[in-house]
Amino acid sequence: MRMLQILLAAPLEGHGWGMPHDASLDGWRIDDLINETSAFVILLFAIMVAWMLWAAVRHGERHPARFDHGTSRRSIAVALSIAAAIFFVVDGHLFLNSIVVWKQVFGNFAWAEAQPGAVRIEINAHQWAWVARYAGADGKFGTQDDIVTLNDIVVPQGLPVLFQVASIDVIHSFNIPNMRMKIDAVPGMINRVWFTAKETGQFDIGCAQHCGANHYKMRGTLTVLPREEWERWAGVASANSARAYDPEDKDAQWAWDWEKHARI
């Protein structure tokens, strides 16, 4: 009975076995590509299984085997054509779409940077937490009014949010499944990634790369607020940070100049 309930719930997004709810503006590009590929793949697999079942049932021991090495020109041409057709349709679909969405969206940092109001956040990961730094009111990183948060990232709805991601100890991976976003945080280099939130709400931030015993607890919260509310939050947080600034606390003063042209 339980099994039945689970099976029935399966196709429901966020309740069954579907992908987690997509709260980003561009996540559908990935979801559609995955689901379209699934349609092809399930069809191919079904044909393969049907073929094997048919052969196993109908071409059993009593069926006389045909003496055929499959080396006729026609037979080879058929095999090559099928392989080429699958390659150009299924693989080609994946390849071209991946290039297009990467170029237009997920790798298009120039466009995202150029949007008015785009939010810039530096992430410094360590075992086992995400430290986030916003430039604050003055728009410069590494100053007294920087907003610094732990495992708590607040972003506005509908504006591009750009991250530059680094790590101080081991490799982590900055992962927000609901935003279809992921990038490794690697010590010694700065990676970047961006998304636009479509909906307000709270979402999990996770670590996708094994980073030690408490890897599973490297969890943060992403809060998406309506734009005005976020601006209010940012103003208050920046003022608070400036007030609480402690010049003695060197560990808290990590920051880097926002790199317009990070490695990727």
Binding site: A65, I82, D91
Partner: peptide, 21 residues
């Protein structure tokens, strides 16, 4: 995936019209 498909096609066509034990 191209050579892999050819290998699969060969497997599937090997068992086809066989006398499977």
């Amino acid at each position: 995936s191209v050579p892999a498909e050819l290998l699969f096609l060969n497997w599937l066509r090997t068992i086809w019209q066989g006398s499977i034990r």
